[in-house]
Design a protein around this nucleic acid. Structure first.
Lengths: 181, 181
DNA sequence: CATATCATGTAAGTGGTTACATGATTGT
DNA sequence: ACAATCATGTAACCACTTACATGATATG
């Protein structure tokens, strides 16, 4: 699953520029299950346009640089649907946090506490943003429909479980080596 | 966080060959938060050996190809500890499953059912294996100590939350377009 | 006065995967 | 017979990231 498919997917919810797609990926709902940088988004968009799957139109802006707003073509929407029919690969997860905690025995107690505290803060922050997003104007939301709602609920459930686990079990890990032995 | 660090991490729990490290990564506890292929493991091991962080010794085997068993040197263990002190980056997740469900409106009802059913089966399978592993001989386990136990519990909590969410909410998604509209 | 946001794009570099090469042994 | 497991390694390829190039406007 490459960045091209990802751009197609974001554009399925409405027109956007490369810059806006990036923002969507790092702040929006997609941030929980995908990522991409400018260096891959812009070339992907150019190739999609070349293949006729998206159409871009230059848009002038007052007091801001011009931007190229892309939108899905009919062919692009069909292509996305076709790509989503294909077999889904397994989730790919890479967590430096869990790698570090897996080796808690090599970590100083304060380092363990720091890791856990930071993660708890990040989880709370993320959950707060999700709750706020869900509360504000369900009509004017960029993502409507059953799919986004289902996936957001999925992400919310995972984050809640993580937070719950950490709060219940942090004491086990934060003991000093001496008391743990 | 590269494959070298990962190899160092696996070897911190005991000596292993490249082949065994790969198995550990796709079947063992690490599979939940990291991945790597032979094409990256063997060169990583060679470079670690060159840097004196691991030492390899050829081991002949009856009725099996020879293998090179690597183990951490004192310098390697120090180096791993140092690497784990560094700031941990954010988790990297890439889920084709969630990308597909995010666009449930482009999926046929039976496709949605198929995706959910497959995922539920995979989750149950994974949880069953974890429960079995946890039950059998805590003494002879490759991974002992608080770190692995904590991380396994973490993974278990996430998988359980996913399974729970899917079973509670699958009906929302599996309705036909007609009844959903 | 410096930093952040908005905005697009390219080039170099990297870190990885896939496929290939090789071959005995064990299970179906 | 055929596929899977055990076992190591290389080479070609690929997608993606980082850094660079450019520049206006807003914010602290």
């Amino acid at each position: 699953m490459d960045v091209q498919t990802l751009c197609l997917a974001v554009l399925a919810h409405g027109p956007a520029s490369g810059y806006e797609i990036k923002k969507e990926l790092e702040e929006g709902a997609y941030s929980h299950f995908f990522r991409a940088s400018f260096g891959s988004i812009y070339p992907a968009l150019a190739r999609l346009a070349g293949a006729g799957l998206v159409s871009g139109r230059e848009q002038e802006q007052a007091k801001r640089p011009d931007k190229k707003v892309y939108k899905l073509t009919a062919a692009g929407r069909r292509d996305l649907a076709r790509r989503l029919q294909g077999p889904v690969g397994p989730d790919y997860v890479r967590s430096e946090f869990l790698l570090a905690l897996f080796h808690a025995d090599l970590l100083a107690p304060r380092r363990r506490r720091e890791l856990i505290a930071d993660r708890i803060a990040a989880l709370k922050d993320c959950l707060a943003r999700m709750d706020k997003d869900a509360a504000t104007a369900p009509e004017q939301c960029r993502y409507e429909g059953i799919g986004p709602a289902f996936v957001c609920g999925y992400g919310h459930a995972i984050l809640t479980a993580e937070l719950d686990y950490l709060e219940r079990n942090r004491a086990r890990l934060e003991m000093t080596e001496a008391s743990a032995a």
